[in-house]
């Protein structure tokens, strides 16, 4: 009897364990949810207070790894990569709704509190670049000359686009304008992510998730531009940065290939073509040589017994 009981317990535990390991699926619209405002230091501070009161019991202090490892699913350290890979919207959803051992906080905390906690948790991530849902009106005075600046921020591993406007010698940042970033390549440029809107500081960050193949020293040519050219004019900037992977492969036209010029055609095709042409024409000329011999025979007498007619 006890034996069967044990088996059942083990099975239940296994099932629970499996469910706990399952990924926590967040609805797509919730996943894309963004804070209306940019996280500030004061938001992080009040977030830290809330965290100390409601979260530390299970999650420990972020960055210390002193979370309650006995719980299933494991609460984990909020500073860990696994945690930080969540979007802001995912974190918001998970804190609000809860699951199994994680309680729901949607009635215990205000929405502002939850965002404060997220701001605090994000402060442990140096590469984090915030996106906001804030509507920034871009009231650009007439006559402003816009210009885009492109830089790579090593710390955030992100490309920083800065849109500035100059009017009467005074420079100011321009927010609320959609910009795109692309990498130059053969046959059409490669877009990096979706278009982004510049924030209040006139900045838009593009994160490189994958390594971009560069040239022999890792140079990559980037092209940043404003999307609505009809509204703002054709504002574009190009910059070559050494941020790509070093690529030592020979150029597509360096070696013999079907697509190359005739001088770099594959040898088999050169020999195949010229060989067959020469072979056929050799016999054509041989036939002409035989005709010449026929002509020469015309002067020769024919013995009576050999006459054809």
């Amino acid at each position: 009897m006890n034996k069967y009981y044990l088996i059942v317990v083990v099975c239940v535990c296994a099932v629970l364990n499996v469910t706990a390991q399952n990924t926590w699926v967040v609805p797509q619209d919730q996943k894309e949810k963004l804070s209306m405002v940019e996280f500030t230091e004061s938001m992080q501070k009040s977030g830290a207070d809330v965290f100390a009161g409601k979260c530390t019991a299970c999650h420990g202090t972020p960055g210390k790894g002193n979370f309650n490892a006995l719980l299933n699913p494991s609460p984990d350290d909020p500073a860990s990569e696994k945690f930080q890979l969540n979007t802001d919207g995912e974190l918001f959803y998970k804190i609000s709704e809860g699951r199994v051992t994680m309680p729901s906080f949607k009635s215990a905390l205000s929405k502002a509190d939850i965002w404060n906690v997220i701001a605090y948790v994000r402060s442990f991530n140096t590469t984090y670049v915030q996106e906001t849902a804030e509507k920034i009106e871009s009231n650009i005075p007439e006559g402003t000359v816009l210009s885009l600046n492109l830089d790579y921020e090593e710390e955030k591993k992100a490309l920083k686009l800065k849109l500035t406007g100059t009017l009467n010698g005074e420079e100011s940042v321009v927010g609320g304008v959609e910009v795109t970033l692309a990498v130059e390549r053969y046959f059409g440029n490669l877009k990096i992510g979706e278009g982004k809107t510049t924030n209040k500081s006139g900045l838009a960050y593009f994160i490189l998730n994958d390594e971009i193949p560069g040239d022999s020293i890792g140079n990559v040519k980037l092209i940043a531009q404003v999307v609505e050219t009809e509204l703002y004019g054709d504002i574009k900037t190009e910059k070559t940065l050494q941020i790509g992977a070093v690529n030592n492969k020979p150029a597509l036209n360096a070696e013999r290939a079907m697509w190359n010029t005739v001088k770099k055609a594959p040898l088999w095709i050169i020999f195949g073509y010229t060989g067959s042409v020469l072979a056929v024409w050799f016999f054509i000329f041989y036939v002409l040589f035989v005709v010449k011999k026929i002509y020469a025979l015309g002067k020769e007498d024919i013995p009576e017994d050999q006459k054809v007619i």
Binding site: V290, V291, I294, Y295, L297, I302, V308
Partner: peptide
């Protein structure tokens, strides 16, 4: 081509024509 119906001429003609007939197939 100074054709005199010489039997040797016929032989050469057969030879040349035969060669062409074989050549014309792959071409």
């Amino acid at each position: 081509f100074k054709w005199t119906h010489h039997p040797k001429q016929y032989k050469l003609l057969f030879k040349a024509t035969r060669l062409l007939i074989i050549l014309v197939i792959p071409t």
